[in-house]
Each structure stands twice: as C-alpha cells, then as structure tokens.
Design a protein around this nucleic acid. Structure first.
Lengths: 118, 118
DNA sequence: TTCCTGTTTCGATGAATCTCAAATCAAGCT
DNA sequence: AGCTTGATTTGAGATTCATCGAAACAGGAA
C-alpha cells in the first residue's frame, strides 16, 4: 500500500508543489495529507522516523530500533512502523533474518514543501 | 498557550535547524513536535489551516470558516481551531464582533525544515 | 527435521479524539 | 436594561488509537 503523495500542481508558480499558502485544500486533497501528518503526530513514531532518516547508509535494522531506549515492547514498535509504512513515509525490506527500513525522501520533501509556504 | 517551536541547534552544519535527518530526536524533543504534527493530522484542521494561510491579508474571519463548505457545526470548527491554536500553528484575535485567525509562519517553516532533510 | 531468534499479527483494554446539542460568553444594537 | 448575532465552552455519545500479552510467522543454525 505504497500510496504516493498527491503533489498538487501549482497553477500559478510552477516550481514544485502548491503549498497550503497558495490555494485552499478541498476534502479530497486533504485526506491523504492528513493521514501522513497524523502518522507523524506521535512521539514514538517521530523518534522512529528520526532514527531511520538519520541512519548511516540511509537505512536501519529493526533490531536497532527495538533494542533502543524506547520504553515500549517490540509489538508496539512494529505497530508504529506499520503506520509509518502505510502513510508512505518509510519502506521496509526483509533481508535474511532482519528487516531494514529506509525513509521515502520524496514524500517527506513533499510534506515539507506543503508546509513551507512556497 | 503560545508554545514556541523548540528549534534544534544543529551541531554540525549550522545553517538553520537540525532536521530529523541529522540527529535522532529524544523523547523531550519529540513531544512538542508530535503535538504540532498531530494538530495537522486531521483533514478538517488541514483545510482550516489552508484557508487561514491562503487568506488575502494574512488573516481570515471565523465567520468565513463556519459558513464554508465544511460539513460540521460551528462548535466543531471552534474545537479544531483551538487545537491548532494550542499547537502554536495559528493565533486568534477578537476585533469587535468577529474573531480573526492568522498563521504563525515561523512555526510552520520550522516544521517544514525538520521534514526537509536540511 | 527441530530448535531458536527476530518480527509481525491477533485480541483485548484503557485512554484519547471527534462530533453534536445545549449552555455560556462577548460585543453591538434598540 | 433587554435583545440579537457571532464564537466558544461544556457535557455526552460513539469512534478511534496506543499499548500490551499471547500467538503466529520467517529465516538461519544445529
């Protein structure tokens, strides 16, 4: 379910993507964006994404996440990773025993652009 | 409760603010950021913020929000505006009969920078 | 094959959230 | 004062979410 970010076409300045500052969102446009921001709206998920994005090599093993200083059980970690995955913010891949996650930078940059005001 | 965004000092590249790509967030740093992203994680709030940010003159009257095409009652609109307000994303001011809201652009740009990866 | 470690899914529970109707507050007007 | 309009707050109902323990699944090693 790798839902792509519906980057809004900017009718005026055709640089990148229309931020909320230029034109009001309708219900259809707002729904997927809200899902992505909601995925970011949890301290644990924000820290998980932070760890994934800051990881050297652009990816991180789940074992380095569950063993971390998060005060939650592995099932909870997995639950939060799933929400980030379903929002399209990260992707996961199993290689042998371990599962590796990496950020979807295009989606993150898209959200950033929407917030930027340009 | 106009909570300022705790812009993270970047120890390495001292350009603006440390995005999640550079250093992992700890629990203390993540909490206020999560509150702000959570405030964005609702379609109605996203559309409200969009309307506010896109408003000519930089502000908009609540009467132009409640009368809009949102399929919710005025109390619900007011509830969502309060959440955006408490997250520090907008500010409201009463001038006579009507209440006007405007975005807190610094906070929005701060969130954008955190997502941008630089 | 049988174990063992790592990860995800399932089921349940308590907390948080969204929405509305009713009540309350704020400001202007008669 | 009393009345009207606009906006918020309160209280209640229904839904969603976060978290856990237990179970199931995936892959490697003995």
């Amino acid at each position: 379910m790798s839902k792509q970010l519906p980057v809004l076409e900017s009718p005026t300045a055709g640089s990148c993507c229309a931020p909320i500052a230029e034109e009001a969102l309708d219900a259809v446009q707002a729904a997927p964006l809200a899902q992505q921001f909601k995925a970011l709206g949890d301290p644990i998920r924000l820290r998980l994404l932070s760890r994934i994005t800051a990881a050297p090599g652009g990816e991180i093993c789940v074992c380095d996440l569950t063993g971390g200083d998060f005060q939650v059980t592995p099932p909870t970690i997995s639950h939060h990773l799933k929400i980030l995955r379903e929002a399209g913010l990260i992707t996961g891949e199993r290689r042998g025993t371990w599962v590796y996650y990496r950020p979807v930078t295009d989606v993150l940059k898209g959200l950033s652009g929407i917030l930027a005001g340009q």
